[in-house]
Design a binder for these strands. Structure first.
Lengths: 343, 343
DNA sequence: TGTCTGGCTGCACAGCTGTGCAGCGTCGTG
DNA sequence: CACGACGCTGCACAGCTGTGCAGCCAGACA
C-alpha cells in the first residue's frame, strides 16, 4: 500500500508534475523548472526548498515535454532482427552502454516481428535510427530525411543513391579474402561458402570476395545460400555439403560465426568428422562464444569496440552534418578449426 | 532561433508537425489530429486530403506530445545487466517481440554501466519498468509507486515489505531440488554448487534448495560463490574445485547455464575430464546454446514463453490494479552431461 | 419557405515544460 | 536621500497534440 499523502500531493496513479512541486514548495512553476536547469537563475534557498519538495514527492523532469521545446530528443532508435544472435547481442550490449554513458536513451525495436513498422520510431522523435540488422526500407530512409533524423547503418547494404545515411562498415571484402587465403594455405582442395538466404547485406560481400580470391587460387567453390542467419542454417548446410565421396568438401567458410558454429558442430558430432584434420571451418565476426574451448573457431574478427566507437560518433553528429563513411579493419583470429598451413 | 519557413513544407532538420500538414492540406490543425484519431469526426474528403499531405511531407503523429494528454505512455522500460548473456538475450528477444505485437515500445537500459541511474527511466514517463537483472533499488521502487508506474520483477529478489511490484518467478526451489535429485540418482558422492558473487537473487534460492535437498540425501556440498554471472566464473570455479585427489568432486550444479557451460568446457578441454563419466554437470535456464551438440548440457528449463506471457500480462495491467504474483513451473531437460541413473 | 437536424469544422483550452521579459525588492553608491 | 544596479521571481507564451463546445452549412421535412 502507498502511504497516505499530504493534502498538497498529486492524485494517485498519475505522474508528479512541476506544478505539484511548486505548490508544495510555495513557489511558481517556473522556479521549479529553473531549479532543474543548470545555469538558470534561482536563489540558493529556493533551489534547496524545491529540491526537497521534489525529493519528497518523487518528482522527475518530464523529458518528453522538454523535447517539445528543444530541437532534438535524447532518444536513439535501435533496430535489430534477432537479439539472441551471439554477435548482435554483443553489439547491443556495447551500444547500450555507450549510449548510456552519453546520456542518450535506447529505444529498441525488433524488426523480426512486424513488417516495415520501423517508421513508428519516428513517432517518438528519435534523433537517430541505428540499424543492426536487415536492409533499410525506402520509406524509413525518406521519413528520416524529411524529419531531420540521422540514420546509421552498421554493416548494412548501401542505401540507394542520394539517401543520406552514415555507414559503419567492417572491411567485408578484405575479410573474405583473408578467409580464402587461409583455407588455401591449409591445402584445401574443394571448399564451400555458406550464406544465409537474405540477399542484401554485407554477408554477400564477404562471400563474393571469398569466391574471387579462391578463383585466383584455382580452387572450386560451392555456394550454399538458404535460410535465415542462424545456427540451424549451418546445420542444414553441413548435412547437405558434407556427403561422403572421393571429392568431399574439405573447407567451409561460414559468413557469420553462428552459421560456422552450426557447420562445425554438425561435422564433429553428427557426421563424425575430425576438425581440422578432415574439415577446416572458418567464420566471420568473432562472437564471444566462438572463443570458448568447446568451439575454438578460427574466424575473421570485427572489432566490436571500434565499431561501437564509430557508431557513437555518427550518432552524436548534428542533423545537418554531412553523412559519414567509416570503414573498420578486420583481422584473422587463429583458434584451431583450420588445419595448419602447409609450406 | 527558428529559421524562416518556406510557404509550404517544413524546413530541413526539424520534425514535421501537424500544423505543417494542416497548412498544406488547407485545413485546421484540429482536423489533422482527428484524421489520425480512430473514430473521430472528419469528412472522407478532408481525411483523404490530409493523409495525402501527411504522406507527402513525411508526417508522423508525435507520440511524445500525445502522451502529455493521456494518462499513460506507450513506453516500457526494460532493465538488464548484460545483454550478451545467452539467456538474458533470449528473454530480451522474446519480450521485445511481445511488446511490439501489443504496440508498446521498449526503452532499454543497461544497468551495468551506471549506478542507480535507473530513475532516469521515469523521466520518459514509462508506464512500466521491467527488471531482468539486478535487484530493484529502493529509490526506484519508491519513484515508481509515487508516479503510478507499475514494476515487474522477473526472477528478482522479493522487494521489501509494502513495495508494490509484480513478481514473475520461475520455481527456483523446485528446480534446485530437481537438480539435486538428479545428481544423487547419478550416484554422485561429492558435489559442488557454483553461484555468482551477487548475493541477492533467485540464484540463491536455487542453490539453497539444492543444498537442503542434498542434505536429505546425505551428500556433502561444497559452495563456490564468487565473481559475476558469467562463463568465466564457471571456468574459475572448475579450476578451483576439480583438483585431483581421492575425494574429487564428481557432480557440479551451476546456477545458470552460462556458469555451467564454463564448468563443463573447462573440465573437458582444460582438465581432460570425461563428462559425464568422471564428472556430472547440470545447469539452470535452458539457454538456446545449451542444446547445441557441442555442449549437450543437462539443465533445468525455465520456459521462456510462459515467462514472457506472464510478464506481458503484468505489463498491461492498469496502474491501480493490485500487484500480481506469477510462478512459472520448471522442468528437467536431459541431454547427457549427467551420468545415467544407477538403480 | 421556414425550421430543424445532423454532420463537419475551427476555436480555445488542457497537458507539461523551457525561457524572454518585465517587475519587484534590496543594496550600494554618489 | 536619490538613483542606479543587480539578483530573483512570476507572467505569459511557445512547442505539439487531443478534445469539448459552439457555430456553420446543407439537406430534409412540414
Amino acid at each position: 500500500m502507498r502511504p497516505p499523502r499530504p493534502p498538497l500531493g498529486p492524485p494517485r496513479g498519475r505522474f508528479v508534475s512541476a506544478a505539484d512541486v511548486a505548490r508544495l514548495a510555495g513557489v511558481s512553476r517556473s522556479a521549479v523548472s529553473r531549479a532543474f536547469t543548470p545555469g538558470a537563475q534561482v536563489s540558493e534557498q529556493a533551489r534547496a526548498r524545491i529540491l526537497e519538495a521534489a525529493e519528497e514527492l518523487g518528482y522527475r523532469v518530464n523529458r518528453l515535454a522538454r523535447t517539445l521545446h528543444q530541437d532534438r530528443s535524447d532518444l536513439v532508435g535501435v533496430v535489430g532482427g534477432n537479439f539472441s544472435n551471439p554477435y548482435i547481442s554483443a553489439q547491443l550490449d556495447a551500444l547500450s552502454r555507450a549510449l548510456h554513458a552519453r546520456r542518450l536513451q535506447c529505444l529498441l525495436m525488433n524488426s523480426a516481428s512486424g513488417g516495415d513498422d520501423l517508421g513508428r520510431l519516428l513517432d517518438y522523435r528519435v534523433r537517430t535510427v541505428v540499424l543492426l540488422s536487415g536492409a533499410a526500407p525506402d520509406t524509413l530512409i525518406r521519413l528520416c530525411a524529411q524529419n531531420g533524423a540521422r540514420m546509421v547503418l552498421i554493416n548494412r547494404p548501401r542505401p540507394p543513391e542520394g539517401a543520406r545515411a552514415d555507414l559503419v562498415l567492417a572491411d567485408s571484402a578484405h575479410g573474405g579474402r583473408l578467409a580464402a587465403d587461409r583455407l588455401a594455405r591449409a591445402g584445401c582442395q574443394n571448399v564451400a561458402v555458406v550464406i544465409s538466404g537474405s540477399r542484401t547485406s554485407a554477408k554477400l560481400d564477404r562471400a563474393e570476395a571469398f569466391c574471387s580470391e579462391m578463383a585466383l587460387h584455382g580452387i572450386p567453390v560451392t555456394r550454399w545460400a538458404d535460410g535465415p542467419n542462424s545456427y540451424e542454417t549451418g546445420v542444414e548446410a553441413a548435412r547437405a555439403l558434407l556427403i561422403p565421396g572421393d571429392r568431399r568438401v574439405d573447407g567451409i567458410f561460414g559468413v557469420t560465426d553462428e552459421i560456422a558454429l552450426g557447420v562445425l558442430n554438425t561435422a564433429r558430432f553428427e557426421l563424425g568428422l575430425r576438425v581440422p584434420e578432415d574439415l577446416s571451418v572458418i567464420g566471420f565476426d568473432d562472437a564471444p562464444i566462438s572463443g570458448w574451448s568447446s568451439h575454438g573457431l578460427t574466424t575473421i574478427r570485427q572489432p566490436l569496440e571500434a565499431l561501437t566507437r564509430a557508431t557513437m560518433e555518427a550518432i552524436t553528429l548534428p542533423p545537418e552534418a554531412e553523412p559519414v563513411l567509416c570503414a573498420v579493419p578486420v583481422q584473422l583470429v587463429e583458434r584451431g578449426s583450420v588445419r595448419a598451413p602447409i609450406t
